[in-house]
């Protein structure tokens, strides 16, 4: 099966419109949710923040999403 990405109009999987992540996976709700999870686990809430520039955690479960190019006003 051909790989698809966000610019392929057929790519978007159906999402639950009621869920936070259904609105926009990179939005503020998603960010705060992950920060809360990181904090609850005793970690620094660094997801999608500028700390990603110096990240040394290759095994972080959010790494792919976190390291995606993200304009300054989306961080």
């Amino acid at each position: 099966m051909r790989a698809r990405r966000s610019n392929d109009s057929r790519a978007a999987p159906p999402q639950d419109p009621a869920s936070d992540s259904g609105r926009q996976s990179s939005g503020s709700a998603r960010r705060w949710q992950i920060w809360a999870q990181q904090a609850a686990a005793g970690q620094r809430p660094c997801f999608a923040s500028e700390l990603r520039f110096t990240c040394r955690e290759p095994d972080c479960p959010w790494r792919d999403e976190c390291q995606h190019l993200r304009a300054e006003w989306h961080r």
Partner: peptide, 20 residues
């Protein structure tokens, strides 16, 4: 403090913004 839509409230610090 973070917490909305019934999620647990958790206190933490803002990430630093040194690159800004």
């Amino acid at each position: 403090t973070c917490g909305r839509n019934g999620t647990a409230r958790v206190s933490f610090h803002f990430p630093e913004r040194f690159v800004s």
